[in-house]
């Protein structure tokens, strides 16, 4: 297990290094510069700016400096938001995205599981059908449509919630629903199909014939085995959701991290592009890693093969 974790970790470091290098090269290859503006600046002012941010040096030197600073934990300062340090910008905005993301994940798992279990237990009955119609709707309606709809209905017309902002617990409700609707539907369908399969397995039939109640069977025996695909999906979902959604953040006026993915590139804000990419990569790697480990714990079969897991 230790060897497995260690090799995974080394692999992660290597991928990260390759990613940093690729991003650095690509970012400098796109036309435009963080220092350009629509209004013409004199050549000298442009030079002053370049000197100030070290952009006057050869790319390879800039790359070296960046790596050196990075190793020391310094992500640099933004070139657009004057003198705001990139790590602080990421930390502040990630706080919002993380809180909203966790709320959406918990909602997705709980609501998705309940819907899925109910549907599986009432297979081919009204409850199953209605749950699955709901699930199809949840998957089909994109958040760019759902979010303004929720906002208009519950904030503007009914005035139950605020239009924008993330200042109190109530403010989480609408963006959480908008974020979670897709995942809820996905989890519900996933869990339903695996659970239907599991419920037909021999050991469940044995349990039933022993006279155990439906509740005990589902909770103690069927659920654990049905959760496997959900755990896999969760690793992917977590990374996607806690790094923020541009659409949801825009519509609900949430100062999260999602918008920086687009904005930093539009602004050609080099330090921010690098910082955001590295941050996202780490989140993605760590969550996938955790999902791999969780897999080992949920599925006893995995433990036997030790180091070969996850490939």
């Amino acid at each position: 297990m230790v060897r497995y974790i260690l090799s995974k970790f080394m692999f992660m470091l290597l991928s990260l290094f390759l990613l940093i290098t690729a991003t650095f090269v690509l970012m400098n290859a796109i036309p435009g510069s963080p220092l350009q503006s629509e209004k013409a600046t004199s050549e000298q002012v442009q030079k002053n700016l370049e000197a100030y941010y070290g952009l006057d040096k050869p790319l390879i030197v800039q790359y070296g400096t960046y790596l050196k600073n990075l190793v020391q934990g310094d992500l640099g300062i933004s070139m657009k938001k004057k003198f705001q340090s990139v790590d602080k910008m990421i930390a502040q905005s990630f706080g919002y995205s993380l809180r909203l993301g966790l709320s959406a994940i918990v909602t997705s798992v709980v609501a998705g599981s309940v819907l899925g279990i109910l549907a599986a237990m009432h297979h081919r009955k009204t409850l199953d059908n209605s749950a699955m119609i709901l699930a199809v709707l949840g998957l089909a309606i994109p958040s760019i449509v759902l979010a303004p709809l929720l906002q208009y209905l519950f904030a503007v017309k009914l005035r139950i919630f605020e239009v924008a902002g993330l200042n109190g617990p109530m403010d989480y409700v609408l963006p959480t629903i908008a974020l979670a609707s897709g995942p809820i539907a996905f989890i519900a369908r996933l869990l339903r199909s695996t659970m239907i399969e599991v419920l037909n397995a021999d050991y469940i039939k044995t349990a039933k014939s022993k006279g155990l109640s439906g509740y005990v069977i589902v909770m103690r025996h069927a659920l654990r085995n049905s959760m496997l695909p959900v755990v896999t999906y969760l690793g992917y979902l977590t990374a996607g959701i806690i790094t923020g959604s541009v659409v949801i953040e825009e519509i609900f006026g949430i100062p999260g991290i999602g918008k920086y993915f687009v904005q930093s590139v539009t602004d050609r804000d080099y330090p921010l592009i690098m910082g955001i990419t590295i941050f996202y990569a780490i989140i993605l790697m760590v969550t996938r890693f955790l999902a791999d480990i969780a897999y080992v714990f949920v599925d006893p079969r995995m433990r036997v093969s030790g180091g070969k897991v996850g490939k």
């Binding site: 239009v163 924008a164 825009e250 519509i251 609900f252 006026g253 100062p255």
Partner: peptide, 18 residues
């Protein structure tokens, strides 16, 4: 001064007296 980019959200804020 709230920092909001989406113009429909801005309009909804105005509509709800925020």
């Amino acid at each position: 001064i709230s920092l909001i980019n989406d113009e429909n959200t801005v309009y909804n804020l105005y509509d709800t007296d925020k």
